[in-house]
Design a protein around this nucleic acid. Structure first.
Length: 305
DNA sequence: TGGATACTACGTCATAAGAA
DNA sequence: TTCTTATGACGTAGTATCCA
């Protein structure tokens, strides 16, 4: 018979178990699990209730037909965020990385992702792209339908070189540009994609490859066909302008939400990866514990020849 | 080879949670 | 209180895999 008395099971300190052998000898055994860890699968009780509710509603939906989607949404949306769960886990358990906050992501921008400054104006081109003019003058282009890395592109204003008088060469860091594109920026200027890159200074063309160039010009008398001119904020009078402003706001909101959703999915993937690695660690620990148990059994019940 | 199914990524909507 | 952000849910499209 082996009696086991737990001690030192406080958080952060390795658990030392006092094992009393049949011979009266006591052995201090240090477990491989260093802290009492909550299960990664552990979730607030409400989540379990929700799962049950989902199954129930699904069944009832089959039998009764249509269910109240609002009610279901209300039930489903009570789940705490995975980031919160993981970060709480991280604060409890050493070794579980926290999901990075937005701040840290801004500090360390991935090389392929353009810096996203807070835009002051957002415009939509005739091809459906969004042009965000940041306060610093940076122009960002977002392609709807493309992913976050390729969809958000930064334009670098390069006034250096030898642009034509009154024109600013804009480097368009697009990975693919199909067709001629034209769009406007505030200040009654027009951004026009050059048909040939020859307009760009040769040193710039060499540095950017086949990158198309854009010029910001004073608008000509006639607007080019297919160009969507966004209304300047702050000068709205007619109902049509108000409607346009509302549309613009909606597009901006959608664009922000689109990016947020992408980011959210990225974090969720990260979260799932963390859980998976945690499971792997726990499985190893479990294995070790089983081995430890076998060893103790061998010690406690020596073979009688 | 073509249809069925599964998987993945995306965009949008609704809403909880937090910030201002 | 209002605004912004984060995220679950849902529908859709593209792609991969399986099977007759």
């Amino acid at each position: 018979m082996v009696s086991v008395a737990g001690s030192g099971t406080g958080r952060g300190s390795p658990a030392v178990t006092l094992v009393q052998l049949p011979s009266g000898q006591t052995v201090h055994v240090q477990g491989v699990i260093q802290t009492p860890q909550p299960s990664v699968i552990q979730s607030p009780q409400i989540q379990t209730v929700q799962v049950a509710t989902i199954a129930e509603t699904d069944e009832s939906a089959e039998s009764e037909g249509v269910i109240d989607s609002h009610k279901r949404r209300e039930i489903l949306s009570r789940r705490p965020s995975y980031r919160k769960i993981l970060n709480e886990l991280s604060s409890d358990v050493h070794g579980v990385p926290k999901i990075e906050e937005e701040k840290s992501e801004e500090e360390g921008t991935p090389p392929n992702i353009a810096t996203m400054a807070v835009p002051t104006s957002i415009y939509q081109t005739s091809t459906g792209q969004y042009i965000a003019i940041a306060q610093g003058g940076a122009i960002q282009i977002s392609n709807p339908g493309s992913d976050g890395v390729q969809g958000l592109q930064a334009l670098t204003m390069t006034n250096s070189g030898a642009p034509p008088p009154g024109a600013t060469i804009v480097q368009y860091a697009a990975q693919s540009a199909d067709g001629t594109q034209q769009f406007f920026v505030p200040g009654s200027q027009v951004v026009v994609q050059d048909e040939e890159t020859e307009l760009a200074p040769s040193h710039m063309a060499a540095a950017t490859g086949d990158m198309p160039t854009y010029q910001i010009r004073a608008p000509t008398t006639a607007l080019p066909q297919g160009v969507v001119m966004a209304a300047s904020p702050g000068s709205l009078h007619s109902p049509q302008q108000l409607a346009e402003e509302a549309t613009r706001k909606r597009e901006l909101r959608l664009m922000k939400n689109r990016e947020a959703a992408k980011e959210c999915r990225r974090r969720k993937k990260e979260y799932v990866k963390c859980l998976e690695s945690r499971v792997a660690v726990l499985e190893v620990q479990n294995k070790k514990l089983i081995e430890e148990l076998e060893t103790l059994k061998d010690i406690c019940s020596p073979k009688t020849d």
